[in-house]
Simulated assay, not measured.
Amino acid sequence: MTSISLSVNGKSVSGDVEGRTLLSAFLRENLQLTGTHIGCDTSQCGACVVHVDGQAIKACTMLAAEADGADVRTIEGMENADGSLGVIQQAFQDHHGLQCGFCTPGMVMSAAALLKDNPNPTEGEIREYLEGNLCRCTGYHNIVKAIMAASGQDVSKIAAE
């Protein structure tokens, strides 16, 4: 067992982990932050995207011990200070960017990373950025629309699908 300490959503946490424990498992099982979904465990689906030291990573590809000393942000840390939905989360709700919701946490976390680096992305840039996130329900149209809306762009002329 290895002792680790890190900041998760602005709070200091620590725990003992086996060397093989993935960050996704540590977040879900040790910290009960179940918004980080595990879809494939092979880095293919993007449901487990979190931010580690400001970078979007798939939590199923990182050992928990590698996050020792890091600043981690999960979907639970995306809400506003008053507990209401954050801008991206609200845009997903407003523009029907989710159906079953399984991919949504990873999509929101990826969208936040994209908008941090590119505050005004085009539809093509959003689609390219989301290539590592799989959604089996929505067909991506409303996800893209939600991300464009979260960036402040006018999406009123984009047809609903």
Rank of each mutant, 00 (worst) to 15 (best):
C45G: 08
L114T: 01
K145G: 00
H95V: 05
A25K: 15
Q89D: 11
A150W: 03
G19S: 14
A159G: 12
H51F: 09
R136I: 02
M109T: 06
R73V: 15
L23A: 02
D82C: 01
E18D: 15
I57W: 05
L63R: 13
E131R: 08
T122S: 14
S156E: 12
Q153D: 01
Q32N: 14
T74V: 02
D16R: 13
Y129G: 04
R127M: 03
Y140A: 00
E125V: 04
I88S: 11
D117G: 13
V144R: 05
K58M: 08
A81I: 08
A70M: 07
S156Q: 00
L98C: 09
M107C: 01
I38V: 10
Y129M: 09
V144E: 08
E76A: 10
D16A: 12
T36F: 03
E128Y: 08
G35K: 01
I158H: 11
C40Y: 09
I143D: 06
M78R: 13
G77S: 14
L27F: 10
E131L: 09
T138F: 07
F92P: 06
G83V: 01
L115A: 03
L23K: 06
V13T: 13
F92Y: 09
G69T: 12
A47V: 03
F92G: 01
G101K: 06
Q153V: 00
T2L: 14
Q153C: 00
T2N: 15
C45R: 02
G83Q: 07
Q153R: 07
V8P: 04
G124F: 09
V17Q: 08
N133P: 07
